[in-house]
Simulated assay, not measured.
Amino acid sequence: MTNEITEKLKQASDGLLMISESEYPFEAFLWSNQAQEPMTAQKLLQLTGHPQETSVEEIELDYFFRNCTQEKEWHDEIQKQNVPKFKSLVKMLQDTFTDINIYRIGTINIDVYIVGKTPSGDLAGISTKVVET
């Protein structure tokens, strides 16, 4: 079941790049048996290998993908073509996981983790980077 979820995530995010000042792909991850206790900033930093003092910001799924799931005037052709793919990625995340949270770790070069609970009690999702100066 769990490999199936990471496989689904890879397929849903394949070829997509997160739009920011720089563009990064998405990577699927799975943290086995981590959904028993609630997710905290400390736990996330530990799971991702970041120093405990790194800043963590939590944001909404729709807000994070706001520039990807609707056509914008400034989109280039590829970004326009990717709008339906981003929509289906968001739908897949919503259909697959419960308690989806998005965490932004750090500033300027920001690691982003979209984390949800699987039915089997694991945490899984996709990560990417955004650059904001």
Rank of each mutant, 00 (worst) to 15 (best):
E23T: 09
G15P: 05
T6L: 04
Q11M: 05
C68H: 13
E7Y: 05
I59R: 15
T118K: 09
D76G: 15
T69M: 12
G49V: 10
Q36H: 03
N101D: 03
S20V: 06
T96E: 00
N101Q: 14
E71F: 03
D111L: 01
A28T: 05
G106Q: 09
L45G: 09
I126G: 00
G15C: 09
R66M: 14
V56R: 08
R66N: 13
Q81S: 10
S22C: 11
L45Q: 08
F26H: 07
T69N: 04
I102N: 02
I126H: 02
A28I: 01
T98I: 09
G121A: 10
L16G: 00
N109I: 05
W74A: 15
A35C: 06
S22D: 15
W74P: 00
K87I: 11
A124T: 05
E21C: 12
L89Y: 03
F65A: 06
R104N: 04
V115L: 13
R66H: 14
E71M: 13
E23Y: 07
G121V: 07
K91I: 04
V115W: 04
L47G: 05
L9P: 04
T54R: 04
Y103F: 13
N101T: 06
S13K: 08
E23Q: 13
Q34M: 08
G125V: 02
Q42R: 14
T133K: 12
A35N: 04
Q94E: 14
Y103G: 01
F64E: 01
S120Q: 13
K8P: 00
F26E: 06
L93Q: 08
E132I: 15
I19R: 13
F86Y: 11
T40L: 08
S13L: 05
G116R: 01
N33T: 10
A35S: 14
K8V: 07
S120F: 08
I105F: 10
